[in-house]
Each structure stands twice: as C-alpha cells, then as structure tokens.
Computed example of a mutant assay.
Amino acid sequence: MPFDREALADAVAVHGVVARIVLVQVKGSAPRPAGTSMLVWRDGSSGTIGGGQLELQSMKAAAEMLMGGPAAKVSRRALGPSLNQCCGGAVTVVTEVFDRQTLEQLRSDFTRIYLRQVDPDAPALPAALVAKLRRADIADTPLSITLQNGWLAEAMWRPSRQVVIYGAGHVGSALARVLAPLPQFRTVLADPRPGYLDSCPVGITAAAGPWSTAMSQAEPDAAHFIMTPAHDQDLELCHLLLSRVFAFGGLIGSGTKWARFRSRLAALGHPTEQIDKILCPIGDRTLGKHPQAIALGVATQLLHFRPVHRNNTAGMDEKERSA
C-alpha cells in the first residue's frame, strides 16, 4: 500500500494539520499488513490500522503530536497483554505530522519513492539502502515499505485499474459503492438517463453521456461491466467492447441470455476466442440475487482477476471462470 500523497493533500486542505500513522514493520500475527496507514486530525480520522487498542493508542499519540509534539515518531509495540490483545505479534508504527508547508516541501531524489528521516538520531543515509531504492525506482513492481536505521522509504505510485460500469441501476450502483473505497480501482459509473447519477458514490467518476462515449474514453486495460436496462443496449456494448482492447469484460445476465448473445455476436463477425473474453453470468450465484450480493460476487471476481499476459485483452483462469 504505497504512500498516497493525493489523499493526504486532500485531508490537509480540509483539516489543516494531519497526522499519518503507518505500520512499517510487522512480525508474527497482526491485524493488518505492513504498509497499512490511516490519517488523524483534531476532530476525526479516516482509514484504519486495525488492532483495537493498537489503533486507539496510536491515535492518542497522534493527537498529542498534533497539539505540538514531534513531527515524526517511531513506536514499537507488542500485541500482547499490555495492549489487552492476544495476536502475539509485534509492529513498528511511524507517525508523522503534515501541514501545507510540509507537503509543499515534500521532495525525493527518486521518481516513485518517498524517502525521509523519521528518527532524529538516525545516522547518515546507508549506501546500501540508496542502492536498493535506485533499483526499486525503476522496477515493475512497487517497493515494499522499508524502515532502515531511522530512514523510511515508501512507494509513491499505486498500480490501479480503471473500471467502467455501464448502468447505474440497482446492481450497477451497488457495485460502484463496493468498489469506491478500494484504492486499486478507479471506477467510472456511466448512465445517460436523467437523474441516475445524482447520488453517485464519493470517489466514483460519473459519466452522463452516451454509453458508447464512456466506452470510447476507457483505458486499454480497463475492466468493463455491462448492465444497462435493455438487452439491445447490452448487446451493442458487447459488440463495441469486442471491437477494442480491454482487460476484462463482464455482462450481467443468465446463461440463456449469454447463449443468445454469443450467436448474435458471432453473426456480427466476432470469432469465438474473442467472444470468450466476456464473462457471463458474473458474480457468485451462491450468494443470491440481491443487488448487493451480486455486487459482492462481482467485486470478488475483479479482486482475483490477473491478466494472463501484460498486454492481454482478457484473462481468467479456470477457477475464476467457474466462479
């Protein structure tokens, strides 16, 4: 979970001074993995590092720092009786205070890594750490959060996939609300019908134009979920989707609907192997047909989705296809 500068800047813009708490090291059993973070301000917070008393005490320490304490603090805590917890592990927590000036001065010698000194007694920056960060800065995967000799390094880039949902009906809106807080997705909810996007969830991009416009503006590696109010519109979008590059395609509907669509898409000139790149039905039928249940099943499929090849236009393994 890389350093999210935009989320931090948004919080600072609203609240003025914000403390960021991040788990930098986790040993043994712990509620959340290393890299998990949360923000705290004078009268509220967002996110969670988990752990009950661990989070409560970390927030109290952050509140003291907001009142004029140190700008950065490293704490090591055992998740045992002293915290009234029985996880058995141990964590290292770094808390830092940010304001507008701090953010403006936030600089790094690396393109995608935020490196800073979090312990005032830290020795000079280790040469081995610099070499490690230079390699990580050009790697294909983000750096894992690293604390070494009082120096903290975090990736500043976040791999994310655009998700386009066509239809803001019951299921489309429910899916958007499930995906909205997940940082690995940037979700677009498209619907040309008046009023359907009026209560678009926070964090979701609304696209009120024609269905085809939303699709034409989608990124090449986007995931698409087609769930309009009419079968002919669904078919047209499937036709358009199969005519372009995409990472994942899902169509709401039954096996019978998909059988009919397959025949019509073949008649439109799409080869079988291309048609197979759209998944229908979507979700997990064992969860039921309630919109939120369907949305949870679809979101789970998306979370498990991994392209077979980096530039592949689709790709689900057999386990995912049978879900």
Rank of each mutant, 00 (worst) to 15 (best):
G203P: 00
P281S: 07
Q292V: 14
L152G: 12
Q85F: 00
T313F: 09
M65C: 15
A62C: 08
W157I: 01
A30H: 10
S216A: 08
F225Y: 13
G28E: 15
P192Q: 01
R100I: 10
A174D: 01
I138N: 09
D317G: 08
V171T: 08
I226C: 05
N149D: 10
G16R: 06
L56E: 11
Q148D: 12
A230R: 14
L133V: 04
L265K: 15
M215L: 09
A230D: 14
R100D: 14
H290E: 15
G50S: 08
V22M: 04
T48Q: 12
P123G: 07
P31L: 07
L115R: 05
R100T: 12
A223C: 11
P33I: 01
P142I: 08
P2V: 08
V17L: 10
N84E: 09
L23W: 02
L237G: 02
H239K: 03
K132I: 03
P181Y: 00
I282M: 01
Q85S: 13
T146G: 04
T36W: 03
F246W: 01
E104S: 14
L23G: 10
L189T: 01
H290T: 12
L79T: 14
S263I: 05
G167Q: 02
S243E: 03
G269Y: 00
T36G: 04
R134Q: 15
F98C: 01
A174P: 06
V18G: 05
P70S: 14
T213I: 05
A266V: 06
V245M: 07
V94H: 09
E55A: 04
P271S: 07
S243W: 00
L279M: 08
A208E: 02
P183L: 02
Q301G: 08
Q25H: 13
T92D: 13
G28I: 01
R193M: 10
